[in-house]
Protein backbone atom coordinates (compact mmCIF):
# COMPACT_ATOMS: atom_id res chain seq x y z
CA UNK A 1 0.00 0.00 0.00
CA UNK A 2 1.34 3.38 -0.96
CA UNK A 3 -1.05 5.40 1.07
CA UNK A 4 -0.06 8.97 1.78
CA UNK A 5 -2.47 9.17 4.67
CA UNK A 6 -0.89 9.76 8.08
CA UNK A 7 -0.42 6.61 10.10
CA UNK A 8 -2.10 6.32 13.50
CA UNK A 9 -1.30 3.89 16.34
CA UNK A 10 -3.21 3.36 19.59
CA UNK A 11 -1.12 1.92 22.41
CA UNK A 12 -2.32 0.72 25.77
CA UNK A 13 -0.51 0.56 29.10
CA UNK A 14 -2.01 0.08 32.58
CA UNK A 15 -5.61 1.27 32.27
CA UNK A 16 -9.29 0.41 32.14
CA UNK A 17 -9.46 0.69 28.30
CA UNK A 18 -11.97 3.52 28.68
CA UNK A 19 -9.98 6.14 26.78
CA UNK A 20 -9.59 3.95 23.68
CA UNK A 21 -13.37 3.92 23.68
CA UNK A 22 -13.19 7.57 22.66
CA UNK A 23 -12.52 6.03 19.24
CA UNK A 24 -14.48 2.77 19.50
CA UNK A 25 -17.54 4.68 20.71
CA UNK A 26 -17.59 7.00 17.72
CA UNK A 27 -20.46 5.04 16.23
CA UNK A 28 -20.72 5.18 12.47
CA UNK A 29 -18.09 7.94 12.38
CA UNK A 30 -15.57 5.24 13.29
CA UNK A 31 -15.91 4.02 9.71
CA UNK A 32 -15.01 7.50 8.44
CA UNK A 33 -11.71 7.47 10.29
CA UNK A 34 -9.84 5.35 7.69
CA UNK A 35 -10.56 8.08 5.12
CA UNK A 36 -8.19 10.35 7.00
CA UNK A 37 -5.67 8.06 8.69
CA UNK A 38 -4.23 4.59 8.30
CA UNK A 39 -4.86 2.77 11.55
CA UNK A 40 -1.60 0.86 11.82
CA UNK A 41 -1.86 -0.45 15.34
CA UNK A 42 -4.93 -0.73 17.56
CA UNK A 43 -4.91 -4.15 19.23
CA UNK A 44 -8.38 -3.88 20.73
CA UNK A 45 -9.86 -3.11 17.32
CA UNK A 46 -7.73 -5.65 15.42
CA UNK A 47 -4.70 -4.09 13.66
CA UNK A 48 -1.60 -5.33 15.43
CA UNK A 49 1.73 -3.79 14.43
CA UNK A 50 3.06 -2.42 17.68
CA UNK A 51 6.50 -1.61 16.27
CA UNK A 52 5.47 0.19 13.10
CA UNK A 53 6.62 3.77 12.47
CA UNK A 54 3.66 6.13 12.72
CA UNK A 55 2.90 9.81 12.42
CA UNK A 56 0.61 9.99 15.44
CA UNK A 57 0.48 7.71 18.47
CA UNK A 58 -2.33 7.82 21.03
CA UNK A 59 -1.13 6.39 24.30
CA UNK A 60 -3.54 5.23 27.00
CA UNK A 61 -2.55 3.99 30.44
CA UNK A 62 0.17 4.51 33.02
CA UNK A 63 3.65 3.05 33.31
CA UNK A 64 3.92 0.49 36.09
CA UNK A 65 6.24 -2.34 35.06
CA UNK A 66 9.86 -2.58 33.84
CA UNK A 67 8.52 -3.89 30.52
CA UNK A 68 6.30 -0.80 30.20
CA UNK A 69 9.37 1.44 30.55
CA UNK A 70 11.06 -0.28 27.63
CA UNK A 71 7.91 -0.38 25.53
CA UNK A 72 7.09 3.32 25.89
CA UNK A 73 10.64 4.19 24.75
CA UNK A 74 10.05 2.07 21.68
CA UNK A 75 6.70 3.75 21.03
CA UNK A 76 8.34 7.15 21.35
CA UNK A 77 11.05 6.22 18.89
CA UNK A 78 8.49 5.02 16.37
CA UNK A 79 6.12 7.97 16.66
CA UNK A 80 6.54 11.42 15.16
CA UNK A 81 3.87 12.91 17.45
CA UNK A 82 2.86 11.30 20.73
CA UNK A 83 -0.41 12.12 22.49
CA UNK A 84 -1.01 10.90 26.04
CA UNK A 85 -4.74 10.41 26.53
CA UNK A 86 -6.54 10.26 29.85
CA UNK A 87 -5.73 10.45 33.54
CA UNK A 88 -3.59 7.28 33.57
CA UNK A 89 -1.32 8.47 30.76
CA UNK A 90 -1.14 12.08 31.92
CA UNK A 91 -1.06 11.57 35.69
CA UNK A 92 -0.60 7.89 36.58
CA UNK A 93 -4.35 7.45 37.06
CA UNK A 94 -6.42 6.33 40.01
CA UNK A 95 -3.98 3.42 40.47
CA UNK A 96 -1.27 5.95 41.40
CA UNK A 97 -2.93 5.94 44.84
CA UNK A 98 -0.72 2.90 45.41
CA UNK A 99 2.33 5.22 45.15
CA UNK A 100 1.27 6.75 48.46
CA UNK A 101 1.08 3.42 50.24
CA UNK A 102 3.27 0.51 51.15
CA UNK A 103 2.90 -1.22 47.83
CA UNK A 104 4.75 -4.37 48.87
CA UNK A 105 2.33 -4.91 51.72
CA UNK A 106 -0.58 -4.37 49.33
CA UNK A 107 0.79 -6.87 46.84
CA UNK A 108 1.26 -9.40 49.64
CA UNK A 109 -2.33 -8.81 50.76
CA UNK A 110 -3.69 -9.54 47.29
CA UNK A 111 -1.40 -12.24 45.91
CA UNK A 112 -0.15 -15.45 47.46
CA UNK A 113 3.11 -15.14 45.52
CA UNK A 114 3.65 -11.42 44.98
CA UNK A 115 7.20 -12.05 43.72
CA UNK A 116 5.80 -13.77 40.64
CA UNK A 117 4.55 -10.40 39.44
CA UNK A 118 7.02 -7.82 38.27
CA UNK A 119 6.10 -4.21 38.89
CA UNK A 120 7.93 -0.92 39.35
CA UNK A 121 6.26 -0.22 42.65
CA UNK A 122 4.64 2.91 41.26
CA UNK A 123 2.28 4.10 38.57
CA UNK A 124 3.50 7.07 36.56
CA UNK A 125 2.52 9.26 33.65
CA UNK A 126 3.95 8.84 30.15
CA UNK A 127 5.75 12.18 30.37
CA UNK A 128 7.83 10.96 33.30
CA UNK A 129 9.45 8.51 30.89
CA UNK A 130 9.50 10.04 27.42
CA UNK A 131 8.78 13.35 25.72
CA UNK A 132 5.06 13.82 25.19
CA UNK A 133 3.86 16.20 22.48
CA UNK A 134 0.31 16.66 23.72
CA UNK A 135 -1.65 15.68 26.81
CA UNK A 136 -5.42 15.22 26.69
CA UNK A 137 -6.85 15.16 30.19
CA UNK A 138 -9.88 13.42 31.59
CA UNK A 139 -10.99 10.15 33.15
CA UNK A 140 -11.96 9.28 30.52
CA UNK A 141 -11.13 11.62 27.66
CA UNK A 142 -14.16 12.07 25.46
CA UNK A 143 -14.43 11.50 21.72
CA UNK A 144 -14.63 15.22 20.94
CA UNK A 145 -11.29 15.89 22.65
CA UNK A 146 -9.53 13.15 20.72
CA UNK A 147 -11.13 13.91 17.36
CA UNK A 148 -10.55 17.66 17.74
CA UNK A 149 -6.87 17.04 18.46
CA UNK A 150 -6.50 14.69 15.49
CA UNK A 151 -8.36 17.07 13.19
CA UNK A 152 -6.15 19.98 14.27
CA UNK A 153 -3.00 17.98 13.65
CA UNK A 154 -4.20 16.80 10.25
CA UNK A 155 -4.99 20.40 9.39
CA UNK A 156 -1.49 21.40 10.42
CA UNK A 157 -2.35 23.50 13.45
CA UNK A 158 -1.52 23.03 17.11
CA UNK A 159 -4.39 21.62 19.17
CA UNK A 160 -5.85 23.98 21.75
CA UNK A 161 -5.32 22.92 25.35
CA UNK A 162 -7.95 23.67 27.96
CA UNK A 163 -6.38 25.34 31.00
CA UNK A 164 -9.25 27.07 32.78
CA UNK A 165 -10.99 25.70 35.85
CA UNK A 166 -14.35 24.00 35.59
CA UNK A 167 -16.06 27.03 37.18
CA UNK A 168 -15.64 28.84 33.85
CA UNK A 169 -17.34 26.02 32.02
CA UNK A 170 -20.27 26.05 34.47
CA UNK A 171 -20.65 29.79 33.93
CA UNK A 172 -20.56 29.42 30.14
CA UNK A 173 -23.17 26.65 30.29
CA UNK A 174 -25.32 28.48 32.80
CA UNK A 175 -25.08 25.65 35.32
CA UNK A 176 -26.11 26.63 38.83
CA UNK A 177 -23.19 26.51 41.27
CA UNK A 178 -23.56 23.44 43.49
CA UNK A 179 -21.23 24.81 46.13
CA UNK A 180 -22.94 28.17 46.51
CA UNK A 181 -26.53 26.97 46.29
CA UNK A 182 -26.34 23.55 47.93
CA UNK A 183 -23.13 23.58 49.92
CA UNK A 184 -21.75 20.67 47.89
CA UNK A 185 -18.00 20.02 48.31
CA UNK A 186 -17.18 20.87 44.70
CA UNK A 187 -13.66 20.40 43.30
CA UNK A 188 -14.51 22.38 40.17
CA UNK A 189 -12.65 25.44 41.48
CA UNK A 190 -9.31 23.69 41.02
CA UNK A 191 -10.21 21.26 38.23
CA UNK A 192 -9.41 21.58 34.55
CA UNK A 193 -12.46 22.26 32.38
CA UNK A 194 -13.29 20.10 29.36
CA UNK A 195 -15.98 17.68 30.53
CA UNK A 196 -18.81 20.15 29.75
CA UNK A 197 -19.57 20.37 33.48
CA UNK A 198 -21.13 16.94 33.73
CA UNK A 199 -21.42 16.61 37.49
CA UNK A 200 -22.65 20.12 38.32
CA UNK A 201 -25.20 19.68 35.49
CA UNK A 202 -26.57 16.73 37.47
CA UNK A 203 -26.53 18.81 40.65
CA UNK A 204 -23.56 17.05 42.19
CA UNK A 205 -20.10 18.22 43.19
CA UNK A 206 -17.23 17.86 40.69
CA UNK A 207 -14.84 15.12 41.84
CA UNK A 208 -12.02 16.25 39.59
CA UNK A 209 -11.72 13.52 36.98
CA UNK A 210 -9.98 16.04 34.67
CA UNK A 211 -7.21 16.75 37.18
CA UNK A 212 -5.78 20.09 38.31
CA UNK A 213 -6.36 23.31 36.38
CA UNK A 214 -3.41 25.49 35.46
CA UNK A 215 -3.52 27.36 38.76
CA UNK A 216 -4.72 25.68 41.92
CA UNK A 217 -5.49 27.58 45.10
CA UNK A 218 -5.76 24.45 47.20
CA UNK A 219 -5.42 26.25 50.53
CA UNK A 220 -8.48 28.41 49.97
CA UNK A 221 -10.51 25.48 48.68
CA UNK A 222 -9.47 23.26 51.60
CA UNK A 223 -10.57 25.96 54.02
CA UNK A 224 -13.90 26.38 52.26
CA UNK A 225 -14.55 22.63 52.18
CA UNK A 226 -13.82 22.40 55.90
CA UNK A 227 -16.22 25.25 56.56
CA UNK A 228 -18.84 23.10 54.80
CA UNK A 229 -18.27 20.45 57.46
CA UNK A 230 -15.66 18.17 55.91
CA UNK A 231 -12.84 16.87 58.09
CA UNK A 232 -9.27 17.52 56.88
CA UNK A 233 -9.08 13.82 55.98
CA UNK A 234 -12.27 14.03 53.90
CA UNK A 235 -10.80 17.02 52.05
CA UNK A 236 -7.54 15.11 51.54
CA UNK A 237 -9.48 12.24 49.95
CA UNK A 238 -10.90 14.66 47.40
CA UNK A 239 -7.44 15.79 46.31
CA UNK A 240 -6.03 12.27 46.50
CA UNK A 241 -8.50 10.71 44.09
CA UNK A 242 -8.37 10.28 40.28
CA UNK A 243 -5.15 12.28 39.78
CA UNK A 244 -3.40 11.88 43.14
CA UNK A 245 0.06 11.85 41.52
CA UNK A 246 -0.18 15.36 40.05
CA UNK A 247 2.05 17.64 42.17
CA UNK A 248 -0.63 20.22 43.14
CA UNK A 249 -3.15 17.60 44.27
CA UNK A 250 -0.59 15.29 45.86
CA UNK A 251 0.93 18.11 47.87
CA UNK A 252 -2.45 19.51 48.89
CA UNK A 253 -3.69 16.08 49.99
CA UNK A 254 -0.56 15.16 51.90
CA UNK A 255 -0.47 18.54 53.63
CA UNK A 256 -3.98 17.93 54.93
CA UNK A 257 -2.90 14.55 56.27
CA UNK A 258 0.05 15.94 58.23
CA UNK A 259 -0.43 15.95 61.96
CA UNK A 260 -1.24 19.48 63.14
CA UNK A 261 1.68 21.57 64.33
CA UNK A 262 2.33 21.47 68.05
CA UNK A 263 -0.05 23.63 69.98
CA UNK A 264 0.56 25.23 73.33
CA UNK A 265 -1.76 22.71 74.95
Amino acid sequence: MNSTKPKLAVHKFSSCDGCQLALLNLGESLLELPKYVDITHFAEAGPNNPNAKVDIALVEGSISTPADVERIKQVRENSAYLIAIGACATAGGLQALANLADRDAWMAAVYAQPDAIETLGSSSSISEHVKVDLELHGCPVNSQQVIAALADLLAGVNPVIERQPLCMECKRKGVVCTMVTKGEPCMGLVTRAGCSALCPSLGRACYSCYGPAETVNDGALAQRLQSLGLTPEAVARRFLFITSATPPFRDAGLRLRQPPLETDE
Binding site: S14, S64, W106, M107, A109, Y207, R237
Partner: peptide, 24 residues
Protein backbone atom coordinates in the same frame (compact mmCIF):
# COMPACT_ATOMS: atom_id res chain seq x y z
CA UNK B 1 -2.14 -6.47 32.75
CA UNK B 2 -0.19 -4.98 35.61
CA UNK B 3 -1.98 -5.14 38.94
CA UNK B 4 -3.77 -1.94 39.85
CA UNK B 5 -4.70 -3.07 43.38
CA UNK B 6 -8.14 -1.47 43.41
CA UNK B 7 -9.32 -3.41 46.41
CA UNK B 8 -6.59 -1.89 48.51
CA UNK B 9 -6.95 1.71 47.56
CA UNK B 10 -10.69 1.99 48.10
CA UNK B 11 -9.85 1.44 51.76
CA UNK B 12 -10.48 4.60 53.76
CA UNK B 13 -12.72 6.21 51.11
CA UNK B 14 -16.40 7.08 51.48
CA UNK B 15 -19.14 4.82 50.10
CA UNK B 16 -20.27 7.31 47.45
CA UNK B 17 -16.66 7.85 46.35
CA UNK B 18 -16.29 4.10 45.93
CA UNK B 19 -19.08 4.14 43.32
CA UNK B 20 -16.86 6.37 41.17
CA UNK B 21 -13.64 4.53 41.99
CA UNK B 22 -14.74 1.01 41.07
CA UNK B 23 -16.14 2.27 37.75
CA UNK B 24 -12.49 2.83 36.77
Amino acid sequence: EPPRLFEKFVEGYEYDQVIDMVAR
